[in-house]
Amino acid sequence: MSTVKFTEEHEWIAIDGNIATVGITAYAAEQLGDVVFVELPAVGKAVTQGGDAAVVESVKAASEVYAPISGEITEANPALDDEPATVNADPEGAGWFFKMTIGDASELDGLMDANAYKSFVEGLG
């Protein structure tokens, strides 16, 4: 079972050994509405915590997706090119955005666990 953490920008990050998988939360997918396009980072790209990593576009608008931690992109989800709606159908599973290395594990300490994120979302009203 992997460890899953959450950001205040509504990304989730699941850690499996040296690799982390990143996506947007069910709450974020619900807020965005129907996703029609996802721009994913190139494999090998270095990202920094809080920096731009991907773009998700709904019918209405484009939104940035930020890197929850620093590291290097190792894989982008090819399913999202063909079927962006996967983000709505299974945001915290098949709708993952990218995988990355864990540049600095201590950056994970500042992120929320599932309970803390749940409280955070409830606080948004």
């Binding site: 509405g33 129907d34 029609v36 709904s58 019918v59 209405k60």
Partner: peptide, 12 residues
Amino acid sequence: PVQYPAGILKEH
């Protein structure tokens, strides 16, 4: 209302 539960694609 910007959308209902059906969502923009279905409403369209």
